[in-house]
Amino acid sequence: MKEYKKIAIVRLSALGDIINSAVVLQFIHKKFPNAQIDWITEEVFSPLLKSHHLIHNVHIINLKKIKKEKNFLLLKKNISYLRSLGEFDIVIDMQGLLKSAIVSRFISKNTHGFDKESSREGLSSLFYKTTSKIAYEESIVKRNCFLSSDALGFELSDEMILNKKPIFEIKKIDFIDASKINIAFIIGASWLSKKYPKEKIIQLCNELKENSIIVWGDEDEKKDAEFICKHSSYASIAPKLPLIELLSLISSVNLVIGNDTGPTHMAWAQNIASITLFGPTTSRMIYETPKNIGIKSSSKVDILKINKNDFSIQDIEVKEIVSKAKELLNYEI
């Protein structure tokens, strides 16, 4: 097996994808304990990655800012910075988009990524020295794990993923009452059609009759959280939390119920029981385990052409979620 001393991972966004990519760190470290692992990402996600004990350096680029401001000078500065990082034995592009492939190539010629058929943007494969082939329909977590192990030349099994350690080392948050059964509800999402209705979350809180913590991200979500708390005596609103404290909260509860979004994926990352609700997306977005499950609406999904007007998540029955939640809580407690 080839020895790797300096490895770079490119995963720029989004939160859930970064979480589902970071699982590979523990497996890479086990095979190459002396390797330096650097990560390239957007600035907003850097606090989460900088706290990871297996990451040597986090390098920040600002592609979103460049795109928004059309700032050529900032683009030039970012390119110069990437080229100044020094030589890596390998750069693994875990995003598989044209922009991430170009970023990878600016860092080094020793790039590895998904092949043309395995990537959402097939042109990205033109920028890689070597590639991996895995079905695009496969679980995102399994794709990430296969890509990294294939790139570095070692085997990574389902059993290893199932028995993973929590991805992030974090302190449990102190405002959680450990004497209660605590359920975190993740009510936000990047699209409206990915959100489970707040009225049904109220029903869930009232049916489960446990300490329900409503997690929100922006002002609209805060209003929904306040509405839920007003109509359920079991619900309380979480404070506004930065990424590290949000991860701490998720790591401290008994169960997470939420939409297909980053904070919900944190539960799987930290080995916390979870139920992820899917409407316009599918369970390929998670890695299902006995205590991390997905509930999908009846709609058919074309993963190559997601329909953001698919609001079928609203049709998922409260009683189905309650039943699964009780099973998971009995499994955990």
Rank of each mutant, 00 (worst) to 15 (best):
E3A: 09
Y4L: 12
K5I: 11
I7L: 10
V10E: 09
S13D: 08
S13Y: 13
L15A: 12
L15Y: 07
D17P: 04
I19Y: 07
A22R: 04
V24F: 05
Q26G: 14
Q26P: 02
I28Q: 11
H29Y: 14
I40K: 11
F45D: 13
L48W: 10
L48Q: 03
L49P: 10
L49N: 01
K50Q: 11
S51P: 09
H52Q: 07
H52N: 09
I55M: 03
N57C: 08
I60G: 12
N62K: 15
L63Q: 09
K64I: 10
K65N: 06
K67D: 13
K70M: 15
N71S: 11
L73D: 04
I79E: 08
S84R: 05
L85N: 00
D93V: 03
M94K: 03
M94L: 12
L97H: 08
L98R: 06
I102V: 14
V103I: 15
V103E: 03
R105W: 09
F106K: 06
I107R: 03
S108T: 02
S108Q: 02
G113Y: 00
K116W: 12
K116C: 02
K116P: 04
S118Q: 10
E121H: 08
S124R: 02
S124L: 00
S125R: 09
S125T: 14
L126K: 01
F127N: 00
K133G: 14
K133F: 13
Y136K: 13
E138P: 04
S139E: 13
I140N: 08
V141D: 04
K142G: 06
N144C: 14
L147N: 05
A151L: 04
L152H: 02
L162N: 15
L162V: 09
L162D: 07
N163A: 05
N163K: 06
P166K: 01
I170V: 15
D174V: 00
I181T: 09
F185S: 14
I187T: 07
G188T: 15
L192I: 12
K198A: 10
E199F: 00
K200Y: 05
N206S: 10
N206G: 07
N206M: 02
E207P: 01
K209W: 01
I213H: 11
E219T: 14
E221S: 00
E226L: 11
I228Y: 06
K230R: 09
H231C: 07
S232A: 06
S236F: 10
I237K: 14
K240E: 06
K240H: 10
L241I: 06
P242Y: 05
P242L: 01
L243H: 07
L246S: 04
L249S: 03
L249V: 10
L249H: 02
I250V: 09
S251Q: 14
S252D: 01
G258H: 06
T264W: 15
H265K: 09
M266F: 11
N271G: 05
I272C: 02
S274V: 02
Y287T: 08
Y287K: 04
E288R: 01
E288M: 08
T289G: 01
T289L: 09
P290H: 08
G294T: 00
S297G: 07
S298F: 06
K305Q: 11
I306C: 01
I313V: 15
I313H: 00
Q314P: 05
E317F: 12
V318S: 06
E320N: 13
S323F: 15
A325Y: 06
A325E: 13
K326H: 03
E327I: 10
L329D: 01
L329K: 00
N330F: 12
E332K: 05
I333W: 08
